[in-house]
Structure formats: structure tokens, C-alpha cells
């Protein structure tokens, strides 16, 4: 009896909320198809996968692709590049926007401040294809950067920025800074605006100067935002993508430009070694989840809060 009634109420609910179901469930199925089904594709890493064969007919390979991966010297180079460039971009893509937001907040002229904001957010909306083109142009032998360096007598002959492998990480990091600093500062600027102005007034009364207020009030005021953004970016360390590296790189600098996703592209998809490519992808996902959990754990211990 009880069960029947319960069944009836859920049926009634289903009928009552049919529009809500129709609005969301088809899309959830969609998400399952395009975001969850690929996870099933991870099985490819443990097979000698051949396209066109049924799942049951695939030849199983155990962990041999992983063994091959860890034995490949190039893999460690690629891993070094991935971590190196993401640490650099974490460092710069993090401190510079905070500094920029702090400075922007000190500006008084409204029109000038707004114009600078508008200009600084702009490059975020331009594609990496275009930014790579601009960077290559500006850093070329007859580009403006070399012209300025020569004018200031900092160098006697033009520097071939794009052909120096040891400079590649720097070029990528600087391009990233140019493109994203303004955009990344929005979130910190919003946090700064949310700080109680009375704190500043009280500190001023006590004789604190501009810099002491920035250090003792503004920075601590946006600490929660800083922490959350930091944890999130640590989780994304290995998933820096490859757009910048692909677009800015060239064969001369490939020892320093190749990152994990590019490695998948070159040694997985392009030559049809799908199983090997999948193994790299799995390694990438596992590392980034580990990093996310570790950084979240440290954060939890420090502040007794959790981001994820």
C-alpha cells in the first residue's frame, strides 16, 4: 500500500515537472555522449587499438603503452616543457594581474582609468592565432622590439627571438602576460572594490600611508580570492593546452616548445597510434587531478575551507 502511494507521488511529480525534465534531461544525455563516452575510450590505452574493429575483437596490450611512454626520453622532455611553462605562466599570470589590479585601484581620473581598463581587456578576446601573428611580427628581425633595442644600444645586431630555443618559454610567458593580464585582473579588482572603505579611512586616521594600506588592508582583503584562484590554476597546470606552443613554435625550438597535448597530436593522432596517444592523455588527466587534490588539501589544512 505504502509503496503504491509512493509510486503514485513520483509519477505525479514526473507529470507535474515534465517541462523541467524536457528542458534539462535531453541536454544531460547530450553531455553524456560528448563528455562521458570519451572516458570509455580510455580502454584504448590498454589495447592495440585498430579503428573499425569491434570492441571484443581488439587485442589487449596490458600496460605496454605506458611502459613504452615512460621509456621514451622525449616524453620527459615534453613533461619538463609542460611543467616549466605552466609554472612560469602560473607565476606571471598570477602576480602581475594582482599588481595590475592594485595599481588600477589607486588611479583617480575616471575617464583615463576606464580607457586603460577597456584597452587592457581587449587582447583577451583576440584569438591566439592572431596574437601569435602579432608577437612574431613584433619580435621579428626588423620588428619594433629589435628596433628599440638597437636604438637604445642594448644590442648591436637584431636578436632572432623566435629562433632561440632557450627563449621560447620566455616568449610564451610574455605573450600570455600581454594577452591575459587585464582580463585576469577583473576578478581581483572586483574583490578590491568589495573591501569596506571604512578600513581604509581608519588606517589613514592612524597615519598609514598609501603603500602600508595596500599591503595591510587591500592585499589581505582579497586573500580569499587569491587562494581560490591559485588552487584552481594549480589543478590546470598540466592542461595548459598547446595552442600557444603550436602557434608560436617552429622546428628550430621544438625541444623547448613541445608540450603534452602536442605530443599526443604528433605521436598519437597524426601517425594513427591511437592507443599510445590515449595513454599520454590518461597520464595527463591523472597528474592534473592529483595536483588539484594536493593543492586543495594544503589549502584545506591552512584555511579549513575547500575549493572543490
Amino acid at each position: 500500500m505504502q509503496r503504491v502511494r509512493k509510486g503514485r507521488t513520483s509519477l505525479r511529480l514526473l507529470k507535474e515537472q515534465k517541462w523541467l525534465f524536457l528542458m534539462s534531461v535531453p541536454f544531460v544525455l547530450w553531455v553524456f555522449l560528448f563528455n562521458y563516452v570519451p572516458v570509455w575510450g580510455w580502454t584504448m590505452a590498454f589495447q592495440n587499438f585498430r579503428p573499425g574493429r569491434a570492441f571484443g575483437d581488439q587485442e589487449w596490450a596490458g600496460l605496454s603503452h605506458f611502459a613504452e611512454l615512460f621509456a621514451d626520453e622525449r616524453f620527459y622532455m615534453v613533461l619538463r616543457n609542460t611543467l616549466g611553462m605552466s609554472l612560469l605562466s602560473l607565476l606571471v599570470g598570477y602576480t602581475v594581474p594582482i599588481a595590475f589590479a592594485l595599481l588600477l585601484n589607486e588611479m583617480r581620473g575616471k575617464v583615463f582609468k576606464r580607457s586603460i581598463q577597456t584597452i587592457a581587456y581587449l587582447p583577451h578576446f583576440v584569438s591566439w592565432v592572431i596574437v601569435a601573428g602579432l608577437v612574431t611580427k613584433m619580435l621579428s628581425v626588423e620588428g619594433i622590439v629589435n628596433e628599440l633595442l638597437m636604438l637604445l644600444h642594448l644590442t648591436d645586431e637584431p636578436i632572432q627571438f623566435m629562433a632561440k630555443e632557450h627563449w621560447f618559454w620566455g616568449v610564451v610567458t610574455m605573450s600570455d602576460m600581454w594577452k591575459e593580464t587585464g582580463w585576469n585582473s577583473i576578478i581581483f579588482l572586483a574583490a578590491i572594490v568589495g573591501i569596506d572603505p571604512e578600513l581604509h579611512e581608519a588606517a589613514t586616521m592612524d597615519g598609514a600611508g598609501r603603500f602600508r594600506r595596500m599591503w595591510h588592508i587591500t592585499l589581505p582583503g582579497i586573500r580569499p580570492t587569491i587562494m581560490v584562484m591559485l588552487i584552481l590554476s594549480i589543478g590546470w597546470l598540466t592542461s595548459i593546452g598547446f595552442e600557444k606552443q603550436y602557434l608560436l613554435g617552429n622546428p628550430i625550438v621544438s625541444d623547448y616548445s613541445e608540450v603534452l597535448d602536442l605530443y599526443v597530436l604528433n605521436y598519437g593522432i597524426k601517425v594513427g597510434r591511437y592507443s599510445y596517444g590515449t595513454a599520454i592523455g590518461i597520464f595527463n588527466s591523472v597528474v592534473s587531478i592529483m595536483l588539484l587534490l594536493i593543492s586543495n588539501g594544503i589549502f584545506k589544512r591552512m584555511t579549513k575551507e575547500s575549493v572543490i
Binding site: 563528455n35 570509455w40 584504448m44 593522432i269 591511437y274 596517444g277 590515449t278 592523455g281
Partner: peptide, 17 residues
């Protein structure tokens, strides 16, 4: 939905799909 923010199948499996 939230799961998809943190996780993706990776380049090759998506390509095969």
C-alpha cells in the same frame, strides 16, 4: 554538468568519438 568542468576524455578518445 559540474564533472565536465574538471574532467575530459582527452584528445584521442574525443577524436575517435
Amino acid at each position: 554538468l559540474a564533472f565536465t568542468l574538471y574532467f575530459s576524455g582527452g584528445l584521442v578518445p574525443v577524436y575517435m568519438l
